[in-house]
């Protein structure tokens, strides 16, 4: 009888379910899937994806997912393997169409030549914070459309149309952002963690220093004093962090070097004005231009 109930539940729930590890990929999946898919994010913009618990609610979501979209490159290494092993979902295992690792479909930066944990939290496959370059978003959108079409052939046309529409709007938006951000080329910034490598490369910014003395190691009074000394020769225009990173260190440094401490959005909802994917990059460009005045 239990099995009967399960089968009824399974057929009643015909909607395709996408589970994104990070909210930005959930937003991309929503753009492509529209009403045909039910999209959830395992994390909110306020949560550090390095430090997530393999919670019961995430196991329940993984159990029912038809497609998992995760940054990969080790970002979710502390929890995703547990979800994949315990949720009993064959369709979203690595190698299946239902498992999409973003690090496999975008060009990776900062692939280390030397791997040693004394260097901090190093990701052997490269920097996993790929979502801060909008061109990567376009690549992932195209791949999500392919995967959704493979999993749900009946909706293939819908996904293809929506993907083409999104791609057109997104490329026009990229051209506008690039034009507006032209004055930012060569502008120096300080970042909290190594989260902005892709943005820096896209806009031609110069990332002169990190608040974390090594990736993943929180800044200390001593490391900040050293950093302040190093920055005397430089004129960074902004100190940039993510919504989930503590403000103490960047506010402290801001007070000493005069550059504003900025929270740049990395996903819809991470700051008040970044309401959707387009808003995220509108905000990034606007905030950086403001800081550069």
């Amino acid at each position: 009888m239990v099995l009967g109930l399960v089968l009824v539940a399974a057929t009643a729930d015909a909607e395709l379910r996408v589970l994104a590890c990070e909210p930005v990929w959930a937003a991309v999946a929503k753009e492509i899937g529209g009403e045909r898919v039910h999209v959830e994010s395992a994390t909110t913009p306020q949560q550090d994806p390095h430090y997530i618990q393999a919670r019961p609610s995430l196991l329940a979501k993984t159990r029912r997912a038809d497609l998992l979209v995760c940054s990969g490159a080790g970002l979710e290494v502390g929890w995703l393997p547990v979800l994949l092993r315990q949720a009993g979902n064959a369709g979203v295992q690595p190698g299946q169409p239902g498992f999409l690792e973003v690090a496999k479909v975008v060009p990776m930066l900062e692939v280390p030549t030397r791997i040693d944990r004394s260097l901090g939290d190093i990701h052997p496959d490269g920097n996993p914070h790929t979502e801060t370059d909008p061109r990567n978003i376009a690549r992932v959108a195209a791949e999500i459309a392919t995967r959704l079409a493979a999993i749900d052939p009946a909706g293939a046309d819908v996904y293809r149309k929506r993907a083409a529409d999104f791609d057109g709007r997104w490329r026009r938006a990229i051209a506008v952002w690039e034009e507006h951000a032209a004055p930012l080329r060569g502008v120096e910034i300080v970042t909290h963690h190594v989260s902005w490598a892709y943005l820096v490369q896209w806009l031609g910014l110069v990332d002169v220093a990190h608040l974390e003395p090594k990736p993943g190691i929180p800044p200390s009074a001593g490391s900040l004093a050293t950093l302040l000394e190093e920055l005397k020769q430089r004129r960074p225009k902004a100190i940039v962090r993510l919504a989930y990173e503590p403000e103490r260190a960047s506010v402290w440094l801001s007070g000493r070097i005069g550059a504003p401490a900025l929270v740049l959005p990395h996903a819809p909802g991470s700051t008040e004005r970044a309401k959707d994917l387009f808003g995220v990059f509108d905000e990034i460009v606007r905030l950086l231009l403001e800081a550069n005045l």
Partner: peptide, 14 residues
């Protein structure tokens, strides 16, 4: 190069 890197399933450069 960009399209090769963006092709699904292609191994990362490293």
């Amino acid at each position: 190069e960009a399209s090769a890197a963006a092709r699904p399933g292609s191994p990362p450069a490293a």
